[in-house]
């Protein structure tokens, strides 16, 4: 694998994480439990989809075959998507969505903090910009985990269950392979073991404050980074890609 091939794969993974999670959050539009949260989730979706545009555009440039952000978002098949399994998990109830958001934002926040120092100028600039946005995402989801955990008996039990159910998808965020190792060594990518340490601390701290129990399961699901997904991604793509698949090249 060349450095360029690794960089392309890296950008696709990052871009797919934000695209798929952004799409998931956008599904809340008009369905939020209260107006403020409807607006919050769609705002976060907007940030993530915007971040994805930067990354997929860059991926297309690195690839050098003339593919742009839209080609990559709308014309790839399920097996070509490299998002982490966590990001494609269903919205469930509001607590499920906040648990998913909290796990992801905590990871992404510390990931971007490292990526700011990337030797790749585009990735470094991207990280600098996105970190400001993700700071708000992490604050928002942390506050909800605390509020639900430290809320009523029912909210406590529900968010605990959400955190347990999604726990098995958190390991994949920190899994390393040839791509991440090569780019970390080059100073382009991020050392995921450092991110994991900070993530562990943050999650522990927030759950403690929320009077919740840290899940203990050690078996972790994986596959997203290799294009092997849960059944949910196919349904997302049929919704996300429908228009461009039916009317290729259609413009507003």
């Amino acid at each position: 694998m060349t450095k360029e091939e690794a960089l392309l794969e890296y950008c696709i993974r990052l871009g797919d994480d934000s695209l798929i999670l952004g799409h998931r959050l956008s599904e809340w539009c008009g369905h939020g439990p209260i107006l403020e949260e409807d607006i919050a989730m769609t705002n976060i979706a907007l940030d993530l989809v915007g971040q994805s545009r930067t990354l997929l555009t860059y991926a297309g440039e690195v690839e050098g075959k003339g593919r742009g952000e839209d080609d990559l978002a709308y014309m790839r098949s399920e097996r070509e998507f490299k998002n982490a399994l966590l990001t494609e998990q269903p919205n469930g109830h509001f607590g499920d969505t906040m648990a998913r958001q909290f796990y992801f934002s905590a990871y992404y926040y510390f990931f971007l903090q490292e990526l700011v120092n990337s030797k790749d100028e585009t990735l470094a600039a991207f990280a600098e910009k996105s970190l400001k946005e993700v700071t708000y995402h992490l604050r928002h989801s942390s506050e909800w985990v605390i509020r639900l955990g430290d809320g009523t008996e029912e909210s406590h039990q529900k968010i605990q269950e959400s955190l347990e159910n999604l726990w098995r998808y958190t390991g994949e965020l920190f899994m390393t392979d040839e791509v991440s190792d090569m780019l970390a060594k080059e100073g382009i990518g991020v050392d995921l073991t450092q991110v994991k340490q900070k993530w562990d601390e943050r999650v522990k701290q927030v759950l403690e404050q929320a009077t919740l129990t840290l899940p203990e399961g050690t078996w972790m699901a994986e596959g997203g980074r290799k294009g092997v997904h849960t059944e949910h991604l196919g349904y997302i793509l049929s919704d996300l890609q429908y228009l461009q698949r039916s009317y290729p090249g259609l413009k507003w």
Partner: peptide
């Protein structure tokens, strides 16, 4: 503060 996210990306409510 009612919400960190407002009517546009740059505003809080």
């Amino acid at each position: 503060m009612k919400s960190q996210f407002g009517s546009t990306a740059c505003k809080a409510l």
